[in-house]
Amino acid sequence: MSLTEEQIQRYSRNIILEQVGGAGQEKLLSSRVLIVGLGGLGSPAALYLAAAGVGTIGLLDGDVVDLTNLQRQVIHHTKDVGKRKVASARSKIRAVNPDAAVRSHDVWARADSIREIIREYDFVIDATDNFPAKFLINDACYFEGIPFSHAGILQFEGQLMTVIPGKTACYRCVFAGPPPGNAGAPCGQAGVLGVLSGVIGSLQATEAIKCLLGIGELLTGSLLTYSALTMDFRKVPAKRRADCALCGQDPTITSLVDEGKVTCNRKGCKR
C-alpha cells in the first residue's frame, strides 16, 4: 500500500508527526474501528476517526435521530431528524473523508449477535447510553480479546477507561454490574451538557488512534474522570480484581447475557 498524492496532502499533519509518519498513516488506513452508539460520544469519535484516516469504521446503533439528540450528537443535522442513525452518520463520515469505508450495523447491541460483529474490528469504542449495553460490550470484548474504550457521561461529568482484555482492569473490575434500580439516573431526566460528550468522545477517539498505532501510554489501569464545572481531570487507579466475575481467577460469567432489559418507553430512549 502506498499513499496517493491526495492522501499525502490530506494526512500531512499526521505524517509530519514523528510517532505517525507514512507507516503509521498506512496502518490507520488499514485499521478497523467499531463505534457502538452514535449519540453524544459516538458522534465526535466517528468524525475524528474518519478525518484521521481510519480505513474502516463500523457503526452500530438501532436508533433513529430525534430532535432532542441534536444538542450534543453533532454528527446528526437538523435535516436528519427521523432518519436511521447509522445512515445519517455514514453520510457525514463519507463527506468528511471518502477514504473511510463505513460498515453499518443497524441493530441494538445484543448478546446473541455482538460477538460476531466485534471480532471483525481492531478496536471498539463503547459510546452507548445505558448500563446493560456497557457491560455487554465489556464482556464481549473480553471474550473476543478486542481492546476497547469505555466511557460514560452524566450531567457535567464524564469518565473514561481503556481496557486490554485479560491484561488490564475491565469495566467489571471497577463496577461489578449495573447499579440497582434507577441509580444511574435515566437518560433524559438527568440532563447532560452537550459539549461534555464532545470532550469525552474525542478522548475515546484519541485512545483508539494510540492503540492502533501502538504509541504513547493507553489509559489502562486507571479511570479518568472529568468535571466540566471545575475543569478537573483526575486519574483514579483501577487495578484488576482477582475476584472479578469476568476476568478474575474464578469467573462466574462465562458467556454473554443481556443485562436487564429496556425499561423506558419514552421516544428516543432505550433504557
Binding site: 499513499l3 499525502i8 496532502q9 500531512s12 505524517i15 509530519i16 509518519g21 507514512g22 507507516a23
Partner: peptide, 13 residues
C-alpha cells in the same frame, strides 16, 4: 512548506 517536509519524511522512511 510544509508539504515538502511531509514528502521528505515519507522518502526518508
Amino acid at each position: 512548506c510544509p508539504l515538502n517536509l511531509v514528502k521528505v519524511k515519507l522518502a526518508i522512511e
